[in-house]
């Protein structure tokens, strides 16, 4: 080992130790070193992904989420949710991401965000909402996950994965992408079944309220959704994944409460009529 390489190894291992990594993470790291053609390559891969790379990672995550349940067949509703979502996302610090929103055909009550601007709301969640301000609150929460890169950070931390080197040796762009999607599939399933850190969820609640308020809506949309969820039995079959992956709604309301005072005077419309117009078909479907 050359002296320079020695120093590099020493620094990398120190960083891992000081960072308080687990044996598991250290193992994953060393496995990475072996698989990706050396330490230098691995450290390169641990750099912050560019926006283009983030979007490609998001593509892979979204493909797996849509693999679990496809989109709801209601083009008008899909376009409406995209327009509301885009309006909310335009108020964020990343207005120019290629934001995409979708309603999936699931009776479970949940919503998901993936890196790069992909957001999926379940049909079950849509049916719980009363108006557009509540939708804006839910979408604002998910938009905040994206702007804060909560999932991206969690995915990278989970396995110290060298996502960026996926398929580096592949012949075509397609096969490279396929390899990335394949590589992401396991960590994606693990992360979306486990959920983010509670602190990330609380932060997304705080930011979601502000984003919907900036967009001109009644800022109490998200709190209203949380009171709906707080009134339900957390053991309801259709809430199991949401309950498992998020702090309980009452805890989220309690945590959010001090900040709500800052948006209390920001009145705004709820747009109940327009929301009902676009969700009429949905409301008439049985669970």
């Amino acid at each position: 080992m050359s002296p320079a390489r020695c120093v590099l190894v020493f620094l990398a291992l120190s960083a891992l130790v000081l960072g308080g990594c687990s044996q598991q993470q250290a193992d994953a790291f060393m496995r990475n070193v072996n698989e990706s053609g050396g330490l230098k390559q691995t450290l390169t891969n641990l750099r912050e992904p560019t926006q283009a790379e983030e979007i490609e990672i998001g593509d892979g995550v979204a493909e797996t989420l849509l693999g679990a349940r496809p989109l709801l067949d209601d083009p008008e509703l899909q376009r409406y949710v995209n327009a509301v979502g885009m309006w909310v996302a335009r108020q964020s610090e990343r207005p120019d991401l290629p934001w995409h929103f979708g309603v999936n055909d699931s009776d479970h009550i949940n919503a998901f965000a993936a890196p790069g601007g992909y957001i999926i709301v379940t049909k079950g969640m849509m049916k719980q909402l009363r108006n557009e301000a509540e939708l804006a609150g839910v979408l604002g929460h998910e938009v905040a996950h994206v702007t804060q890169k909560h999932h991206l950070k969690a995915l990278r931390k989970a396995a110290l994965i060298n996502l960026l080197s996926a398929g580096a040796a592949a012949a075509t762009a397609e096969s490279r992408h396929a390899e990335l999607v394949q590589k992401l599939s396991g960590p994606t399933k693990e992360l979306y079944a486990r959920g983010l850190d509670k602190a990330d969820e609380f932060e997304a609640d705080r930011m979601g309220v502000v984003l919907s308020a900036r967009a001109g809506y009644d800022p109490y949309g998200l709190p209203a959704v949380l009171t709906t969820l707080a009134s339900a039995d957390p053991k309801d079959n259709f809430l199991t994944l949401l309950t498992k992956t998020h702090p309980l709604p009452q805890a989220r309301l309690d945590t959010l409460a001090p900040g709500l005072a800052t948006v209390e005077s920001a009145n705004g419309p709820q747009n109940m009529t327009r929301f009902q117009q676009y969700t009429r078909k949905l409301q008439l479907t049985s669970r």
């Binding site: 797996t64 693999g67 679990a68 349940r69 949940n110 049909k123 979306y192 498992k244």
Partner: peptide, 11 residues
């Protein structure tokens, strides 16, 4: 039609 942990696992 679900989006349960099982649906996710087999996606």
């Amino acid at each position: 039609r679900g989006f349960s942990e099982e649906d996710l696992a087999k996606a």
